[in-house]
Design a binder for these strands. Structure first.
Lengths: 341, 341
DNA sequence: TTGAAAGCGATACCAA
DNA sequence: TTGGTATCGCTTTCAA
């Protein structure tokens, strides 16, 4: 019964017959209804309802050259994507913002490094009207490729070298985030400061580290205690262990993502350090994770959902015909004080 | 430059011209290449590469009546979806399994309760070849509607009343999960047992509770200490507080999801109970969360990714023409012992 | 305001 | 093995 036999779908043609008008009229009626008489409109509406008609998207796309769908491109491997609460927050913002439109979301998640070629081919083939690109690494290869595509798109996170690669993007104020973390730790009397930064090839990580360093230097403190992690829990564990080995006297640490910060808390406990008494910890993200740790994380909040929503809005502008605004929109961050620092 | 002006995409027609063959031949060549001479195939391959040709999906869909895409339907509101690590795990499994195919994933996330009508309309309109349905509540309305659709589909989680609504589904062995939790607590000497169960209108919650109760009764223990939460952190907090109020002497509790279990740990700490010394806690899921809590959670592991992968496989079978196997595929669960119990 | 008709870019049948 | 051609369902001129 529930087999692949799709019960026949009504076509425009049939609606026209039932409504007693032409196909052209039906088409106008279901698309905004400009230049159709009230009675024709009514007849069409009735026929549509009666038949349960919905336009065939493929047929429509073929002529309008629009697909009414956009892609969310995730260059990260799937594992990274779903396990990062910030990224899932962005996803939620995207779906929310898209809900108000006719646009469908096609999810393009890389499976292995180097999958980008396949993703780009998909985008190039006119399957979607635009693309949202999240969480990209390193060199700005992808940004360049996207620019060449001639397809509307928005980046989540600034490109690595925004001067040489101008693309529309949304980003959090990561520099200020790093600074806020530093100032909080300094302000609460910590002096042996260190940080678990993100990957050196991600702009978000670079910016957070940058803000952190500047604030430390302004306060006359050393800013050379730095270990890098990959933003994941496992990466955070390894980085925090290195940090404690190299700087056993640390009394305050800024960990550049909540997953890494939750790992840092575990490591500190394993090493017999009390948080925040012996070592204060400030995270970054303020996702669900921040409240489930012990102690709950003091962390820099970046608005993940708003991030996703803004990306969609910027894409919609382009789809509406506006030229892409090259350059970024920076979302504010704020420090959320809980118990870890 | 990156404007909405899609640089002209080559068509079959042009490939044919460049290759010096007919459109029909090109079509055969790019689709499996049966009944095309080696030289024709070679000429086409060359032309395709030279022009950077990719078939227009809309045009193809129009005639093949396939869309080469499937929907992941999430009746939950977006918030629930992205904040539930189990669901994101399923998502990952789905994208992984789909990566090996030509199928694209369209994400259909409900925005508000009652959004299902819109989602169903979308499915009904032939926009996708099949659907995966996750995390559904209550009465089996949706299952019935899906059956009526005549579209291949697979449920994640059994329908509420599988006898009256026969649909293909993948599910975890929730009953056994509840039993494992109970047996572990009993086996470690706990006697005042209670549970924070999931929503009474979700089959997964009902099954976990069922297994739990049966094991307790077999052991001659009372199984009446039950509070319900909605599987979220906030729901877990409220339910755990009620539980402690009504059963202050509890020494072992099974919390039916990791998010709720992490909340339960916080509540217990706030009430001055030590875990596991005073109260042992067993969770359910074994997601990332289970390792970030203090103490790390002893929890029943259900294979989220495999769940998603199996759903895709069952859908692929249907798309390949097999009749849908009505009834479920049950995935085994196992107890992961950490420190909370 | 309406309808006739010309495509959009592919597939698939049929005859060669 | 090939190529010509009808066709999928819709939008969009262009005349009426």
């Amino acid at each position: 019964m529930t087999s692949g036999e799709p019960t026949h779908l009504p076509t425009l043609e049939e609606v026209a017959r039932v409504a007693g008008v032409s196909r052209a009229t039906v088409s106008r009626a279901i698309n905004g209804g400009s230049r159709v008489s009230p009675q024709a409109q009514a007849a069409v509406d009735r026929a549509v309802a009666q038949l349960g008609y919905t336009p065939n998207r493929a047929a429509r796309s073929l002529v309008t050259r629009r697909t009414d769908s956009v892609a969310l491109l995730v260059p990260e491997t799937g594992a990274r994507f779903v396990s990062d609460p910030f990224l899932t927050g962005v996803l939620q913002g995207v779906t929310t913002a898209l809900a108000g439109t006719e646009l469908q979301l096609v999810l393009l998640v890389a499976q292995h490094a180097g999958d980008t070629a396949r993703q780009l081919r998909y985008l190039r083939s006119g399957h979607v009207d635009g693309a949202l690109v999240t969480s990209h690494h390193g060199n700005d290869e992808l940004a360049l490729e996207m620019s060449r595509l001639g397809l509307p798109f928005v980046f989540g996170g600034r490109p690595f070298d925004p001067d040489s690669v101008a693309v529309p993007y949304v980003d959090a104020d990561n520099v200020n985030g790093g600074r806020l973390a530093a100032e909080h730790l300094i302000g609460t009397g910590r002096r042996r400061l260190a940080t678990v930064a993100g990957p050196a090839d991600m702009s978000a990580a670079v910016d957070r580290l940058d803000g952190w360093r500047r604030a430390l230097e302004e306060a006359g403190l050393h800013a050379d205690a730095v270990e890098h992690g990959d933003f994941t829990i496992d990466g955070g564990t390894a980085a925090m262990e290195r940090l404690l080995r190299h700087h056993p006297d640390v009394d305050g640490v800024f960990v550049a993502s909540d997953p890494m910060a939750s790992a840092a808390l575990q490591v500190l406990r394993n090493f017999g350090r009390r948080v925040p008494d012996d070592v204060a910890v400030v995270g970054f993200d303020d996702t669900m994770l921040a409240t489930t740790t012990t102690p709950p994380l003091t962390t820099v909040r970046q608005p993940a959902e708003e991030h996703g929503e803004r990306m969609v809005e910027m894409l919609l502008e382009q789809l509406a015909g506006s030229p892409p605004r090259l350059g970024g929109e920076i979302l504010p961050v704020e420090l959320i004080v809980r118990e870890s620092a």
